[in-house]
Design a binder for these strands. Structure first.
Length: 247
DNA sequence: AATGCTGTCAACCGCAGCTAG
DNA sequence: GCTAGCTGCGGTTGACAGCAT
């Protein structure tokens, strides 16, 4: 899109992925993994460059990718993490189970940045102007491929799962939206360090592995339960830190 | 109802960092 | 120590959906 092609000169395809391409890529990775992205498209019989395959997998096809709208808590987390880390999207993404750096970057650039710039006075502005968009099925008219059975987010409604999370988390987290719940940097330093500990030391495949936190295809920790657990712990800590700070 | 505008998101590019030879 | 190849990251772009007029 837009720029000079890197793949076209090799006779490779560019642009939106088709459902068929998705299917081929997913089944190939399920069978052989993705140890070598450069060789993968050739092996899989895809007319794509390795880069493109990798991006497609990481941002869209990976089974543990969480689709749907960002929750308020996730947005808050992004804001806080960004204030600490800057534009290190992959690092931020590593803290948000199921979210990709690209997605986070998009969210930041589209509304979080604007929110911060424009609405310091009243905190969060009201609901987004538009209702939530359907998850774009990028050029795949039938939607984003029939993902492997493990695909967690096949729900037609983009926010089905997120909504569930919203509901459950809202009980403990409502303060964040209603009471101007402020989390300072020290909290995040402590909490994140702790979160990393609890995930990293426990299973050995924590969310923290620098490169690709979700790289472990089969041993991914990001089941819904664990995601919930992550957030619950995170915000329990938030509560703890808050109460401590009041002492 | 038609048109224009704006926001969102997937995908691309180029560069930096890492590793093997 | 140097070079080449590969991967991962961040910035940017353009298509498209939905809202406003």
């Amino acid at each position: 899109m837009g720029r000079s092609p890197c793949c076209e000169k090799l006779g490779l395809k560019r642009g939106p992925w088709t459902a068929e391409e998705d299917r081929i890529l997913v089944s190939h990775i399920e069978r052989h993994g993705h140890s070598n992205w450069r060789a993968l498209p050739k092996q899989a019989g895809l007319l794509r460059c390795g880069k493109s395959c990798r991006l497609r997998w990481i941002n869209y096809l990976r089974p543990d990718v969480k689709r749907g709208n960002f929750t308020g808590e996730e947005e808050d987390a992004i804001i806080q993490l960004h204030s600490m880390l800057g534009n290190r999207w992959s690092t931020i993404a590593a803290r948000l189970p199921g979210r990709t750096d690209n997605e986070i970057k998009n969210v930041w650039n589209t509304h979080l940045k604007k929110r911060l710039e424009s609405s310091k006075p009243s905190g969060k502005p009201g609901a987004p102007k538009r209702k939530a968009k359907k998850p774009m099925a990028v050029a795949a008219p039938e939607g984003p491929t029939s993902l492997p059975a493990s695909s967690p987010e096949q729900s037609p409604s983009p926010s089905t799962s997120s909504a569930a999370e919203d509901d459950s988390m809202a009980t403990s987290l409502e303060i964040s939206s209603d009471e101007e719940f402020q989390i300072d940097d020290s909290f995040w330093s402590e909490t994140l360090a702790m979160t990393v500990d609890s995930y990293g030391s426990g299973s050995g495949s924590g969310m923290e592995s620098a490169g690709d936190p979700f790289a472990a295809d089969s041993a991914s920790p990001s089941s819904s339960n664990e995601e919930m657990d992550f957030w619950v712990r995170l915000f329990i800590q938030a509560g703890d830190v808050q109460s401590l700070s009041q002492i």
